[in-house]
Nucleic acid binder design. Structure first.
Length: 439
DNA sequence: TCTGGGGTCCTAGGACCC
DNA sequence: TCTGGGGTCCTAGGACCC
């Protein structure tokens, strides 16, 4: 038996913990660059704000409906998340942290009233962190996700699931006819793993509800789609195909990408951005204790601007010796950038990705038959001293305290600097931004 | 004027092997 | 003129997740 614990409207809920005046009001949290809505309060959803909807499209609701928009404050959300996760972990022997606001718990073999356990968990997380959660139980992870969806929806629109308890739902306790009624009442697109494209194709084939999918021929659908949908169907029927994974493997890639505050056309400014991104991913790489075998860089023009010529090149540069050294990675990234850059385009976004990640122990140097002029030191070892010192300085004095020269500005403000005009204080991680209480 | 960022997994197709 | 079959590995692209 699995549980899925999920914070309701996570980012908005985090903001509300420290600004209770936001409770009951329509609130959205904006993506980097204040570009799109990435979290919505129930009130904002009721105003019709869609997930990932561009801010400029709903901005008029600020005046007409009192919509409040905040810039994303990931430092705050990350810290709130770890508090919530550690509370949830105590309720089961196994926890898988699935995303910043969700975790699976494996309740296998645990006796007792699960709904009561779920309610207790909810109450504790709410009391200790201020975050409201929903808890769903099911015989498989997919059913637990479905139960969670039911729990949330039953809270917002009680009429849609008359039998379900708001905020805590155990599908395992429902008698078969009631379970079928729930599945009949739920659109297939709400199932974990069934996205936009698949939903459209399923609908064409006459599959609209979860119940339709459960009763469909899994073998035929596997042929039409992929093995993923077959597993999903089996899981919905109660056959577990996925386990709770409490020790997730290290990342296979590390990325840093961002859209710019305004378009960039000149190479020097792109060099600066790409150097900054490469420094960031290098730091993350060292945190994970890995080295990268290749660096990938992309730049892109806007796919929305019809009047601009579109150009979205990318390049991958293998490293002769896998490395976690900022200087090595920055210089590779800049070389890759120079190879793909073409003048005269309005670039709106860039990214640097580290791939072919390995732990230093298992590093296999690329055999370099013709690189005799390039002596092959073991960089993973030789440069850790400098990199550790740099990381320590940046930890203490701020992210950009020490960095490579190409990542710094020579003249004037950067066009690529992203807008973040509505960010709340980082209450829980910066002493200078802590809440002030007035007597 | 203004449209997120960071990941995973699966599949098809090409290159290559004997 | 005639042009195999079975396998692996890699990559690019697509779909999905939050």
């Amino acid at each position: 038996m699995f549980a899925l614990v999920d914070v309701n409207n996570m980012y908005v809920s985090c903001e509300r913990v420290f600004r209770p005046s936001l409770i009951g009001r329509p609130v959205v949290v904006l993506s980097n660059n204040d570009g799109a809505c990435i979290a919505r309060s129930n009130e904002a959803k009721d105003l019709g704000v869609r997930m990932a909807q561009p801010w400029f499209e709903v901005r008029h609701l600020e005046r007409s409906a009192g919509l409040i928009a905040l810039s994303a404050n990931f430092e705050l959300y990350g810290d709130m998340s770890s508090r919530m996760m550690s509370l949830a972990a105590a309720y089961a022997p196994l926890q898988e942290i699935y995303s910043i606001d969700e975790c699976f718990l494996d309740f296998d073999g645990m006796p007792g009233d699960r709904v009561a356990v779920g309610c207790d968990l909810r109450a504790k997380v709410l009391r200790w962190t201020g975050l409201p959660t929903s808890v769903g139980f099911g015989a498989t992870k997919t059913l637990a996700k479905l139960a969670n969806h039911v729990a949330k929806t039953a809270d917002r629109k009680p009429s849609s699931y008359p039998h379900a308890l708001a905020q805590v739902c155990d599908l395992g306790q429902l008698p078969a006819p009631a379970l079928e009624a729930v599945m009949q009442a739920t659109e297939v697109g709400n199932v974990w793993g069934i996205g936009h494209k698949t939903t459209a194709r399923l609908n064409q084939g006459g599959i609209h509800s979860v119940l339709d999918l459960v009763r469909a021929d899994a073998t035929i659908l596997r042929r039409q789609f992929s093995v993923v949908i077959e597993k999903t169907i089996l899981e919905l029927r109660g056959t577990p195909c996925m386990e709770v994974n409490d020790a997730p493997a290290a990342n296979q890639q590390i990325m840093c990408s961002r859209s710019f505050g305004s378009p960039v056309t000149e190479l020097p400014e792109l060099v600066e951005v790409v150097s900054q991104f490469a420094s960031q991913v290098a730091r993350k790489l060292r945190e994970q204790g890995c080295v990268a075998g290749a660096v990938q860089v992309f730049i892109t023009t806007s796919s929305y601007r019809q009047q601009d010529r579109h150009h979205a090149p990318s390049a991958t540069l293998p490293l002769p010796h896998p490395s976690a050294d900022t200087r090595v990675l920055v210089s590779a990234a800049v070389r890759a950038l120079r190879s793909i850059y073409r003048p005269g385009f309005n670039y709106v976004k860039a990214g640097v990705m580290l791939v072919d990640l390995q732990s230093p122990g298992q590093v296999q140097d690329t055999l370099d038959l013709f690189g005799a002029d390039e002596p092959g030191p073991p960089p993973a070892q030789g440069r850790t001293g400098l990199m550790s010192a740099m990381d320590a300085l940046n930890e203490r004095f701020g992210r950009q305290a020490v960095t490579v020269a190409s990542a710094t500005r020579k003249d004037g403000p950067s066009a690529h600097a992203s807008r973040q005009e509505r960010r709340s204080p980082r209450y829980t991680t910066r002493l200078e931004e802590i809440v002030t209480v007035r007597a």
